[in-house]
Write a protein that binds this DNA or RNA. Structure first.
Lengths: 204, 204
DNA sequence: TGTACATCAGTGAACGCGCGTTCACTGATGTAC
DNA sequence: TGTACATCAGTGAACGCGCGTTCACTGATGTAC
């Protein structure tokens, strides 16, 4: 049996409404406080229809991380490729895009930050995987700023860089008007990390 | 009317049981998922007795941050004072103590990390205040490692250092056996930050 | 083409349950005089 | 010393409410032949 593409599309539309409704509510009260009925109500479907899309709230949360979260972070990572639009080094491009994306979808950014440190191990694990992709991209971006970095960038530098990037996004959510300042500070931090690491040795 | 010190002590004992029960449950399911009855049950008091101590769960959470969280972080900060026990520089002492404390009270550490990034603004604000005290201590500790730092340590260095310290605590909760590795990496990150910042200028 | 059947998203009714909160009460302790 | 009163942590009963989940059903669409 095959499925009508129109039907499939409609189903995904409803599932997407559930994910967005969850993000909206989670930004206000926290994901773990949400109930299936509360989310279904916000997505304008009957409570029982929830089960046509997800077995429970945990499955929905993991879908949120894999789908919306994955695309969100992939959008940052894509900035490491040359010729990806705007001016500046790849590092500047990733940083600028990440901060802009956080401002454009603050509910998703808050969810990612909150669940990365939250109490649910499956969520932490799923997000940790997404973040490690970002770490790789940052490693490349940092290296490409310095032609002298023939031996590559130490992983402890990119480990730290990704953490500082996420922290800057979190602070941007608190004070959206400080965008320029936060961007400048973040770049200074990452560059200090790299040059400090390079001058004291200990690569890869 | 005055109060019997025994009575006061007993009341604080029950309040403390509520706070510890909350930490235990929050580490498992997340703070925002907790209900007053659930916490009262875990603390072995009647649901209605909860109100003798806190008006609601939010008030309890703020007390958690101010009391247990405050003492916890103050214990880290105290390590910046010279002669605070063990060997090593003040920075090494803060770092070692922080990681050890995270392992000794993982439930409190998880709560701090989770609510620092969580959905509830009052919690984020209260924790941000505690963390900024820590930032000051780190600034002093980093400066005292380098006699040449007469102009002080740039705030963006200590801003980053406190974030990296908290991140290392979070990773320690995931992999408690990596304690030695995490400590070494954290020290390398903070020292790279400082020396990179010093070599490119831009203090205070 | 027509007919019988399968699939599947959405739904309303109904269930038992735990929730937050209110209320009036108990009993121990402290104060007034 | 004794008596009357105030304070206050703890409690059990009771309330109305929203929760997660089950069930049987509808109706639209796709498949078989």
């Amino acid at each position: 049996l095959r499925v009508n593409p129109e039907k499939k599309e409609e189903k995904e539309r409803v599932a997407h409404a559930l994910l967005r409704a969850t993000l909206r509510l989670a930004a206000a009260h926290g994901f773990t406080s949400l109930g299936l009925r509360e989310v279904a109500r916000a997505a304008e479907i009957a409570p029982t229809s929830f089960y046509r899309h997800f077995a429970d709230m945990e499955e929905l949360g993991l879908a949120l991380i894999d789908d919306l979260g994955g695309r969100f972070i992939d959008g940052w990572i894509a900035r490491v490729k040359p010729g990806s639009g705007d001016a500046g080094t790849p590092l500047e491009s990733i940083v600028s895009h990440a901060l802009a994306a956080a401002l454009e979808d603050p509910e998703l950014m808050r969810f990612i930050l909150a669940e990365r440190a939250g109490a649910l191990p499956p969520f932490r694990a799923a997000l940790s995987q997404k973040v490690s992709l970002l770490k790789g991209a940052l490693q490349v971006a940092i290296a490409s700023e310095h032609a002298t970095a023939e031996a590559g960038v130490s992983t402890y530098v990119s480990d730290a860089a990704v953490v500082l990037l996420l922290e800057a996004c979190g602070q941007l959510l608190e004070q959206p008007e400080q965008s320029t300042l936060l961007r400048a500070r973040l770049l200074r931090q990452i560059r200090a990390l790299f040059s400090g690491a390079a001058s004291t040795g200990g690569n890869t």
